[in-house]
């Protein structure tokens, strides 16, 4: 199974949100990373077929997703950035409704719903109305609905936003288990979400793919370009204007900072082993979280 985007472009008026994106997805987890406004959501919406591209196409094994129609949607699971829901529906009824839309057999659907509610930790709240759910619980329902049809292609837009640290770890473990036999694409601007589970990381900036590689290779890319330095408050403000700054750690009256720079930024700066977070700081100029 091969999912491809070919010269995929989306313009909104004069603004180009996604610019000639060529990507190739096979089995595994892909992390789509970029700051807000990089075009992650637009790219994903085109990939799930709810936003027509201005040019280019998305194909599955050589056939456009438009031609595949219901066949493509049958193997697709999608969780949008903002999960929609009906306030008056209970969690179980909501998932039953979506099971019907996904064409699942009702008996199988009921079993699957119980499994998924258990998986996302909402088994106790299945008869509670969604209007009473917290933001985190709604995200979990969003994840459950995307998994209902056991999709071969799973596209998740900011799935961990609003989840607490425990929930995020739990969710990342779920995804790791799921990734064996399917394509999983998740977008995020939270580095730690992809660091541990994504086999491939796609860096997206201003609608363009900056890089697409494994976490390890991306880190190699910035080797010798990440520096650790101890500076005063005044120096820190000055450096912020000139370099992308990573972690800032206050130590007494000084600050220990990580700087992304092609050359040594300060006399006392020492080159350090880069992390994935440093890659983002280097690529996005401090815009990533």
């Amino acid at each position: 199974m091969q999912l491809r985007t070919q010269n995929l472009t989306k313009n909104f008026g004069n603004r180009c949100a996604v610019d000639h994106v060529n990507l190739n997805f096979e089995r595994g987890v892909y992390g789509l990373l970029g700051p807000n406004g990089a075009g992650k959501t637009t790219l994903m919406r085109m990939m799930v077929g709810i936003l027509p591209p201005s040019s280019g196409k998305v194909t599955l094994d050589g056939v456009t997703i438009g031609e595949l129609g219901a066949k493509y949607r049958d193997i697709l699971g999608y969780m949008p950035q903002e999960v929609g829901y009906y306030r008056d529906f209970t969690a179980k009824r909501f998932l039953q409704y979506l099971s019907a839309l996904k064409g699942l057999d009702p008996k199988y659907a009921n079993r699957r719903i119980d499994e998924l509610l258990d998986l996302v930790g909402l088994a106790d709240g299945k008869n509670k109305k969604l209007g009473q759910f917290s933001g985190g619980m709604i995200r979990r329902i969003g994840i459950a609905q995307a998994l209902l049809n056991d999709p071969r292609i799973l596209i998740l837009d900011e799935p961990t936003a609003g989840l607490d640290p425990n929930e995020r770890i739990h969710f990342r473990n779920i995804l790791s288990e799921l990734s064996e036999e399917r394509i999983v694409i998740l977008s995020t601007h939270i580095v730690s979400d992809v660091q541990s589970i994504a086999g491939q990381v796609i860096l997206l900036k201003e609608g363009k793919v900056v890089n697409c590689d494994t976490t390890e290779n991306l880190r190699h890319m910035v080797e010798g370009k990440v520096w650790l330095a101890t500076v005063t408050h005044g120096e820190l403000n000055e450096l912020k204007k000139r370099f992308p700054i990573g972690n800032v750690l206050q130590k007494d009256d000084h600050f220990e900072i990580r700087i992304a720079s092609d050359s040594k930024p300060l006399q006392n700066a020492t080159a350090v082993e880069p992390s994935l977070e440093d890659v983002f700081i280097y690529v996005f100029g401090g815009q990533a979280e």
Binding site: R45, I50, A70, V83, G84, Y85, L101, K102, Q145
Partner: peptide, 18 residues
Amino acid sequence: TSKMHGILLTTKNGRSKL
């Protein structure tokens, strides 16, 4: 308004049948 449109349109029966 409930932002369900995106999810509905990506389901197998979310277009013609719905």
